[in-house]
Amino acid sequence: MLIGREVTVLGAGVAGLAVARALALRGAAVTVLEQADTLTDIGAGLQITPNGARVLRSLGLGDSLSGAGLRAKAVQLLDGETGSKVLRIDLAELRPGQEYRFVHRADLIALLADGAREAGVEIRLGQKIAEVALGGDKPRLVTEAGTEIRTGLLIGADGLHSRTRAALNGPVAPFFTHQVAWRATLPEKPGGDPEARVYMGPGRHLVTYPLRGGTLRNIVAVEERRNWVEESWRLRDDPLALRLAFENFVPEVRDWLARVDEPWLWGLFRHPVARRWHGQGGVILGDAAHPTLPFLAQGANMALEDAWVLSACLARHDEEAAGLAAYQLAREARVRRIVEAANANARNYHLTGMKRDIAHLGLRAIAALRPAAMLGRFDWLYGYDATAI
C-alpha cells in the first residue's frame, strides 16, 4: 500500500529523517517539513547502541555509521569525588558482536538527511508550522506565514513540543524533575580510549566520551536543584555555575570543566508516554510519542526503532488504520519500559550516604565476580531487533 502513497513528515530530526528514508525505500512519496533554515545541530554527542545500529544498517546506512562514529570499547562508572572505579564493562570483550558507537548528533543528522534524499525524499526547510488539524479529508497544516498545506498521511516527528501529539491527545503539561543538565564539547587530542565514563556523586553526575575520531570530548553534566529551568535545548549558562556544581569532583573533571566557555543548559522534564499515537490521518513517533530522560542513551535509538517498525507495519497491512494500530501495539510496552529504566538511572546515579555506599559496594562485587552480569541485565534493551518485526 505504500507505493506512491503521499506522506508528510514534520521534523527533520533523527526520527523524521529515519522514517522518511524507511518509507521512501518502500515506495512512498515522502516530503519532510523542517522549521529550521538549515540542517545544522547544536554540538552534542549521542550513543548509538546495538538496537539502533541494527536499524541503520538495515536502512543501508551502515557504512555511513561506521565512518561517523567511534566504536565504543567500554563503559566505566567511577566515584566522582575520589576517582575510584566502581564498575567497568568491557563491551569489546563481553559483547564482541554488538555495535556501540559514539556519534556527534550533527553527523547522524547529516548521514540520515543524505540517506533520505538519496531515497527520493524532498526536504523542505524553513517550514514553521503554527497549527496542525487532523480529521476531514486530509490533515491540514498552517504555517506561521499563513500558508495552508493539505497532506496525505501526516507523521509527527516534531519532538517534545509536538503539535501533532497535541492534536491527537490534547495539551499535557510536563513536570520538572528538579534536575538540570549542562552539555558541551571540547577539543581533544586523539588517541585516548574510546570509552564512556560516568562520574557519580551525591545529587549530581557527569558523563563523558570521545567524538569524531577522538578530536572532541562530549560532556553532559547533571545536577539536582529546586530552581525551575526552561525546557529548551538552546539556553546558555555561566560556566562558573557548572564548575561550582562539580568543584568537589576529581581533578580530571575539574580540568575539563575549566575549559568550557559557554555551556548549554536545559531543564529536565518528564512527559507521559502519549495515550494515542495515531488517528484521523496522523501518527507520531520518537520524542513526540515518548519523551525520555537522557540517562539510558536511548532517545535516538528508540526513534530509529520507531521509524523501522512504523514503515514495516504500514507496508504489511492493506489498510492504513490497521498498520498504524499494529505499530503502536508493537512499540508501546517496550518504550514504556525504556522510559522507566531511564528514570531509575536518574535516581541511581545520585545516591547519597549509606544507600550510595551499599550500591557501589554491590557494583564492585559484581565487577569482580561476574563482570558479564551487569551488561546481561540490559540484554532486553540492546538485544532487541526492530528489523525482525
Rank of each mutant, 00 (worst) to 15 (best):
E81I: 13
T31C: 05
G83T: 10
A28Y: 09
G170Y: 02
H178L: 06
L125P: 00
R316C: 05
D261H: 14
A18V: 02
W266R: 11
G353M: 11
R225A: 10
N248F: 08
T164W: 06
R226Y: 15
L242Y: 05
L125T: 13
A196H: 03
V253E: 11
P190A: 02
E93D: 15
A315D: 13
L87F: 00
V273Q: 05
V121S: 06
L257N: 07
A258P: 08
L314K: 02
R88P: 07
E99G: 00
G69T: 09
L363G: 05
V180R: 08
L111H: 00
R336P: 01
E195D: 11
L46I: 10
D193I: 14
G16M: 04
A28R: 01
A241Y: 11
T143F: 04
A22C: 12
H317E: 07
A373Y: 00
T49P: 07
K355P: 01
I149F: 12
I338W: 01
D41L: 12
V198E: 12
G170C: 11
A36N: 13
T38P: 07
I48W: 03
A72M: 15
T185E: 00
V86T: 14
A330V: 03
E122Q: 05
E247Y: 08
E305I: 02
A116G: 09
L244R: 15
R331S: 09
S64G: 06
L244A: 15
A72D: 04
R254W: 14
C313Q: 12
E81K: 15
G299E: 00
R364D: 12
R331F: 04
Q280W: 14
A330R: 08
S311R: 07
L33W: 08
P263W: 10
W277Q: 09
A173L: 15
R212P: 04
E247M: 15
Y384A: 12
K73C: 15
L108W: 04
R356S: 07
E144V: 12
A365T: 13
D261K: 14
R165A: 02
V9N: 00
Q47M: 13
H178P: 01
G152P: 06
A333D: 13
E224I: 04
E81S: 15
A196K: 10
P291L: 12
A36C: 14
G323M: 06
G213Y: 02
T147K: 15
L206F: 03
E131R: 12
G11A: 09
L23I: 00
G45K: 01
R316A: 08
D37Q: 13
R254I: 10
R212N: 03
R337L: 10
V30I: 03
A92M: 09
Y199R: 09
E262N: 13
V283I: 05
G159K: 08
E99A: 05
G376N: 14
R150E: 15
L375Y: 00
P202S: 14
G203K: 03
A22M: 06
A333N: 04
A68T: 00
A321M: 08
L381N: 02
V9E: 06
A326L: 02
A365G: 05
E231N: 03
